[in-house]
Amino acid sequence: MAKPLVATGHFTGCFGCHMSILDIDERILDLVELVEFDKSPINDIKRFSRPVDIGLVEGGVSNDENVEFLRMFRENCKILIALGACAVTGGVPSIRNTVPLRECLQEAFIDGPTVVDGKIPDDPDIPILLDKVYPCHEVVKIDYFLPGCPPSADVIWAALTALLSGKPLDLPYEMVKYD
């Protein structure tokens, strides 16, 4: 029987959740036995080669590229998991949500104390920012949420092994943290 396929994706976050995936230490060997990784920054596979069983997405949605890739994950993943505070709530990047986008950009690229000859970037190669940073579930359907900043390696391990074995996802008290 073919191994279940797992993909991971990264949007507006700090890559900390991916670090946490790696943090499962030697269990990564078990995991590799258990699953096969498709698209993921871990193996640098950029495109989905086929539909996968589980997708883990890190980061909130702050620009048009995030939207596109998140939608792509939804289309290609049977189960989609929002991994970590940013994917679940918007997280730290969403601190800008109460400030109008124009003010944010004005401060960052024009008025900021360290800016010289500032200009708001408009290069066509960079993604266009959205008015807010959105949690993933406002953009696509999310099947499971794993909060944490980052979620601990144990949470990720517990979640993956439960889902792969078809058991209910029942996390003990100490594993669920928002920070």
Partner: peptide
């Protein structure tokens, strides 16, 4: 709606 402002600014 979400992208409108970003487009206008840039």
């Amino acid at each position: 709606k979400a992208i409108k402002e970003g487009c206008e600014i840039t």
